[in-house]
């Protein structure tokens, strides 16, 4: 399958197979009017199968959101059709307005204007807790 190479933009690689649409939506890519290719179930030596998203535009891509989604993802930055950097994701220390706190006793449940902020409290087990009430983030996305 041939997908045109991109001039200026990003290749989000090593997305777990079947998860690209979730990430697409999380990054708000549906709002862009540039060319975007979503490749599902591409063969991968390391992962068996993987998804890839190619974005042909130099957008302000949130690495924080991608790292939070899956720290195994790599982001390749393309400028003038050349690969200029390959970034391996890390779990971000804090994520803002990516997930909502589900604790009905949390102040965010009644004060709508507050940002929903989760901080990483256990890197090994990928545990995030609400900044305000310390509730563990259960459903990840």
């Amino acid at each position: 399958m041939k997908v045109d190479s991109i001039k200026n933009g990003f290749v989000i690689d090593h997305i777990p197979a079947g998860k690209s649409m979730e990430l697409y939506s999380l990054l708000g890519l549906e709002e862009l009017d540039c060319q975007i290719a979503i490749i599902k179930n591409a063969p991968s030596r390391l992962m068996g199968k993987k998804d890839i998203i190619k974005i042909d535009a130099d957008i302000d891509l949130s690495l924080e959101v991608i790292g939070f989604f899956d720290s195994g993802i790599t982001v390749n930055t393309i400028k003038n059709e050349e690969l200029v950097s390959k970034t391996h994701m890390e779990l971000p220390l804090k994520v803002e307005n990516v997930c909502k706190c589900k604790n009905p006793r949390c102040i965010t449940s009644t004060e709508q204007e507050l940002s929903h902020i989760f901080r990483l409290t256990d890197r090994e087990n990928k545990v995030y807790r609400c900044l305000y009430c310390d509730s563990k983030l259960k459903s990840f996305i």
Partner: peptide
């Protein structure tokens, strides 16, 4: 004192 968790932090 507040019944909601995190209110004093806010």
């Amino acid at each position: 004192r507040h019944p909601k968790e995190g209110a004093p932090l806010v």
